[in-house]
Design a binder for these strands. Structure first.
Length: 480
RNA sequence: GGUCCCAUCGUCUAAUGGUUAGGACGCUAGGUUUUCAUCCUAGAAAUCGGAGUUCGAUUCUCCGUGGGAUCACCA
């Protein structure tokens, strides 16, 4: 059996966004699943649109997600460079075979003349077709004029798509397209066919925007006598409103922004895989290995899917919870603003003790940063100013009513084992049951944190440590 | 406008001729050792419309409708 080869072929015109990455991911997953190769090819044939640094950016994006390539801009293959700009001679060679067969010719018209043809067609309300203006005799291609492909067979093309099934399109799409531009660079239409053939790509996986132009490609495959690869059309990813394709103009973000926001690559991969594909089971959370095992072309969706950030957030939480406490503490530290990390009681040790209580509730780095800015964690790293009124548990009580309970708790805690939150809990639990849990636990927690919302009092006491905890309780006792 | 593609809860989707149309996110309610969160349980929520084929259509066919894509010396 022939080795499966897939490729991802972006143009270096800026950052990578969700849509592009998903295409890359599926191509990668399929190659992995089939024991084949995945190639990263850079389609840099339009110098004017090229954005400096984007090749590195693309590589960084894919690497972040754990998508690695057998051949790429940094790793040439047996077929040569993976940068199209390095392959000009190859395209010229293929173009020449077309010229030799009388299937390609230099465009004799000026831009102005072409524009006039277009205007005319528009005025007559019919589509513009270059082939209607095809010169009767072909000049010699000297490289100063664009080279056009002469469509020899204007017919209806039928082809099979691994996802969409039988597809067809009419002759309206067939025209004498430019294959080599006046600047010597090939067009996408031509270059990708040559490269896919040279690189022995078996499965061409790309977005549905290419369905309409497939007849053009097919006519070129025929003229070049290149066998068709398997076409695999991916559904578009739509903007959150589900109305239009997610593009840079519709708020599609740079993939790496998600990294900065604290999304884990595993969560992103898992989430991305599930827009437009599913295993047919009820499983939602997949590791990469599992994804590779279960991935099939047949289960790729036909219709477009909206990018739902809330589900991404949920997914991220799933993966955040799998992190070790140490790793999660690092994650938290990254998210904490200077105002927190510079607090007097801030230490790695305290952070490590606090981390689990954050881990069970948080979805992203942004959430931690925001909570921190709102003062949610300050109690752990500095002695809070406690408003005595907050100690009041029931409406008809006065803060003073909590005094005896706190006094007793202080005694119990003085003798308590502070090695875990549980040992602290067992020291006061019986008493809490006796007086009513809320009656003790609320004032205790408030004394420790000064906040209406926080983790449970045992965790809080554990985080700040025995000495500090006792100090805080004593302090509230004095101030009521 | 021509051509092409698509159509199940708000969203991601399962079920391809026979199911109480299932799951997940989100939402609502209740519960779990105080608050917030987590977690658990329950609930509301969908087959775009119309014909046809069939004993029976989410599923097959046709026509609408809606949405998307594409018509470059961009990829």
């Amino acid at each position: 059996m022939k080795k499966i080869v897939t490729r991802f072929a972006p143009s270096p015109t800026g950052f990578m966004h969700i849509g592009g990455v998903r295409t890359a991911l599926y191509s990668y997953l399929y190659a992995q699943k089939m024991g084949g190769d995945f190639i990263l090819r850079i389609e840099d044939t339009d110098k004017s649109r090229e954005v400096k640094g984007s090749i590195a950016h693309i590589q960084e994006s894919l690497t972040w997600l754990g998508i690695d390539w057998k051949y790429g801009p940094d790793k040439p293959g047996p077929f040569g460079s993976c940068l199209q700009s390095d392959r000009l001679d190859i395209y010229k060679k293929y173009a020449q075979t077309l010229v030799d067969k009388g299937l390609a010719y230099p465009d004799p018209y000026t831009n102005e003349e072409l524009e006039a043809f277009r205007e005319q067609a528009k005025a007559e309300k019919r589509p513009f077709l270059y082939r209607e203006h095809r010169p009767e005799t072909f000049g010699v291609w000297d490289g100063t004029k664009p080279l056009r492909f002469k469509v020899s067979e204007v017919k209806r093309y039928h082809w099979t798509d691994a996802v969409r099934g039988e597809l067809e399109a009419g002759e309206e799409m067939l025209d004498d397209i430019i294959i080599i531009k006046a600047d010597g660079y090939p067009t996408y239409n031509f270059a990708h066919i040559v490269d896919d053939h040279e690189m022995e790509v078996t499965h061409v996986m790309r977005g549905e925007e290419f369905i309409a132009s497939t007849p053009k490609f097919l006519s070129l495959y025929d003229a070049l006598e290149i066998p068709y690869p398997v076409f695999v059309t991916m559904p578009p990813i739509m903007a959150a409103d589900g109305k239009k394709k997610l593009g840079k103009r519709d708020g599609a973000k740079d993939l790496l922004e998600y990294r900065t926001e604290g999304y884990l690559p595993e969560a992103m991969v898992n989430f991305l895989a599930l827009i437009g594909w599913n295993p047919g089971t009820e499983q939602e959370v997949f590791g990469e290995t599992e994804l590779i095992e279960t991935f099939t072309l047949e289960k790729i969706q036909r219709s477009g899917g909206a990018f739902n950030e809330e589900k991404l957030l949920w997914m991220n939480k799933e993966y955040l919870q799998k992190l070790s406490t140490e790793d999660f503490a690092k994650y938290v530290k990254d998210a904490l603003p200077e105002t927190i990390t510079s607090l007097p009681l801030f230490t790695e040790q305290t952070l490590l003790k606090l981390a689990p209580s954050i881990q069970e509730r948080v979805h992203s780095k942004a959430e931690i940063t925001q909570a921190a800015e709102e003062g949610e964690y300050s109690w752990a790293f500095s002695t809070p100013k406690v408003d005595p009124a907050l100690v009041q548990w029931k409406k008809d009580e006065s803060p003073k009513d909590a005094l005896p309970r706190l006094q007793k708790a202080l005694e119990l805690l003085t003798d308590a084992d502070f090695s875990t939150a549980d040992t602290i809990k067992s020291a006061v639990w019986d008493y809490a049951e006796e007086v009513g849990r809320g009656e003790l636990l609320w004032p205790l927690r408030v004394s420790l944190t000064g906040r209406e919302r926080s983790p449970d009092p045992f965790t809080c006491a554990f985080v700040v440590g025995k000495e500090e905890a006792l100090l805080r309780i004593q302090s509230i006792l004095n101030s009521i």
